[in-house]
């Protein structure tokens, strides 16, 4: 389950705790900030990993996101959920890194796929989580940064459209458009690379 399960009472109190901790951290309390890091490191790292599709780079980006959060605590607006604010920093850093990486990595991943093509296909319902992760990594290479960010935040992490819009700094309609476009691209890539997993009668 994603870090931001937003609509339960437990999360509401956790968010209130986050705000208290953020306030203390803003006053210079490192222990309070360490608690925030401990609480959100998993979600931030996972988000970065899903956008970057690289665990090691995601770890570095997550660290940088927390450091930037610490440095910019004075700019934190308590009307935002702390986690949303943190996700915004991490997602923007991840997308920047993705853009900087350019097409070099896409070529590399295509090569990996070609090397590993001898693996026997499995039925989609029998796919294990690790296999889904591996397939997603390969398909998501084809997504432009904004589409990948929107898809990961909304569909993988489960954030609401309005939160994703806030994180990405765009309108909700734009978020929906990105998500629709990402889904179409993923489906097309699935048909091209893994036709065995395409739903019956489904075409790209």
């Amino acid at each position: 389950m994603g870090v931001l399960r937003l609509f339960t009472s437990r999360d509401v109190s956790a968010e209130a705790d986050d705000r208290v901790l953020a306030k203390a951290a803003r006053a210079g309390d490192e222990q309070a900030f360490a608690l925030l890091v401990k609480r959100h490191q998993g979600g931030v790292r996972r988000l970065a990993a899903r956008i970057l599709l690289d665990e090691e780079e995601a770890r570095d980006i997550a660290q940088l996101a927390f450091i930037k959060a610490w440095e910019n605590l004075s700019r934190y607006d308590p009307s935002w959920c702390f986690s949303t604010w943190l996700y915004r920093i991490a997602a923007n850093l991840a997308v920047d890194a993705l853009r900087a990486r350019g097409s070099r990595d896409r070529t590399h991943q295509t090569h990996l796929r070609l090397v590993g093509e001898d693996e026997a296909p499995k039925a989609p319902q029998l796919l294990q989580e690790k296999e889904v992760e591996s397939i997603f990594r390969q398909l998501a290479q084809a997504l432009p940064p904004a589409q990948r960010q929107a898809f990961v935040l909304r569909e993988v992490e489960g954030l609401s459209t309005s939160e994703v819009a806030r994180i990405m700094g765009c309108t909700e309609t734009t978020v929906r458009n990105h998500v629709f476009a990402a889904r179409a691209t993923l489906r097309r890539e699935l048909a091209r690379r893994f036709p065995e997993y395409l739903p019956k009668g489904g075409e790209a």
């Binding site: 996972r46 927390f66 989580e129 889904v132 993988v156 889904r183």
Partner: peptide, 24 residues
Amino acid sequence: PALAMALALPAAEPTDGHFVEEVL
């Protein structure tokens, strides 16, 4: 399939004992 894949991705969060210390 894309939406189903998104929900089938592992939810386990990476754990790392040194992460907090490294951030500090």
